[in-house]
Amino acid sequence: MKFLVTLLVAAALFISTSITAQNKTITATVVNVTSDSGKVGFALYNKTTFQKIPLQAQNAEIIDGKSTVIFKDVPAGEYAIVCYHDKNNNDKMDFATNGMPLEDYGASNNDMTLGPPNFEKAKFVVADKNVSLDIKF
């Protein structure tokens, strides 16, 4: 009998831990795309992967100047999103010969100081709730 009670308690603890430790979703929307041509590319990073290889990446169509993606199964932690308007659908951000971007871009927290996005300024936290972000180019 003691064994059965111990087994039931252990199972209940496992189930309650599994329920509270579920991964979350991040919904990211660019709200001010200048045209509906092309697509918006989104990349999700943590501090280690920032501006290198994204943890998740998605492209999304543009409808009425907005583009939205949902990153699923995101564990708790600190993240940043960088996105760009791929106007010509070539799956890369285009730059002028002087290094200036030819396509609009943005990052979470909308800090658009001169230069490329910075993780510390773009980071946000995923904890116990799903996250929804509006990003501006």
Score class of each variant (00 low, 15 high):
residue 2 K to D: 15
residue 5 V to E: 06
residue 7 L to Q: 00
residue 11 A to G: 03
residue 13 L to D: 01
residue 17 T to W: 08
residue 18 S to Y: 11
residue 20 T to N: 12
residue 22 Q to R: 10
residue 22 Q to N: 06
residue 23 N to K: 13
residue 25 T to D: 12
residue 27 T to S: 14
residue 27 T to Y: 10
residue 30 V to P: 02
residue 30 V to S: 09
residue 31 V to D: 07
residue 32 N to L: 11
residue 33 V to K: 11
residue 33 V to Y: 12
residue 34 T to D: 13
residue 35 S to C: 07
residue 35 S to H: 03
residue 35 S to L: 03
residue 36 D to Q: 03
residue 38 G to K: 06
residue 38 G to A: 09
residue 38 G to W: 07
residue 39 K to F: 03
residue 41 G to S: 15
residue 44 L to W: 09
residue 44 L to D: 09
residue 45 Y to T: 02
residue 51 Q to T: 11
residue 52 K to S: 14
residue 52 K to F: 04
residue 53 I to W: 01
residue 53 I to C: 00
residue 54 P to K: 08
residue 58 Q to P: 02
residue 58 Q to E: 14
residue 60 A to H: 01
residue 62 I to L: 08
residue 64 D to S: 15
residue 65 G to R: 13
residue 66 K to Y: 06
residue 67 S to L: 03
residue 69 V to N: 10
residue 71 F to D: 04
residue 71 F to M: 09
residue 71 F to T: 09
residue 73 D to V: 02
residue 76 A to Y: 04
residue 76 A to G: 10
residue 76 A to L: 08
residue 78 E to P: 00
residue 79 Y to P: 04
residue 82 V to S: 06
residue 83 C to V: 14
residue 83 C to D: 11
residue 87 K to M: 07
residue 92 K to C: 11
residue 93 M to K: 05
residue 94 D to L: 05
residue 96 A to K: 15
residue 97 T to L: 12
residue 99 G to V: 10
residue 99 G to E: 10
residue 103 E to D: 03
residue 103 E to W: 00
residue 107 A to F: 00
residue 108 S to L: 00
residue 114 L to R: 09
residue 114 L to W: 12
residue 114 L to D: 07
residue 115 G to D: 10
residue 115 G to P: 11
residue 115 G to S: 04
residue 116 P to I: 01
residue 120 E to H: 02
residue 121 K to P: 03
residue 124 F to I: 06
residue 125 V to Q: 13
residue 126 V to F: 02
residue 127 A to F: 05
residue 127 A to I: 02
residue 128 D to S: 13
residue 128 D to I: 13
residue 129 K to C: 00
residue 130 N to V: 02
residue 131 V to E: 01
residue 132 S to L: 00
residue 132 S to W: 00
residue 132 S to Q: 10
residue 133 L to Q: 06
residue 135 I to E: 03
residue 135 I to A: 05
residue 135 I to P: 05
residue 136 K to T: 15
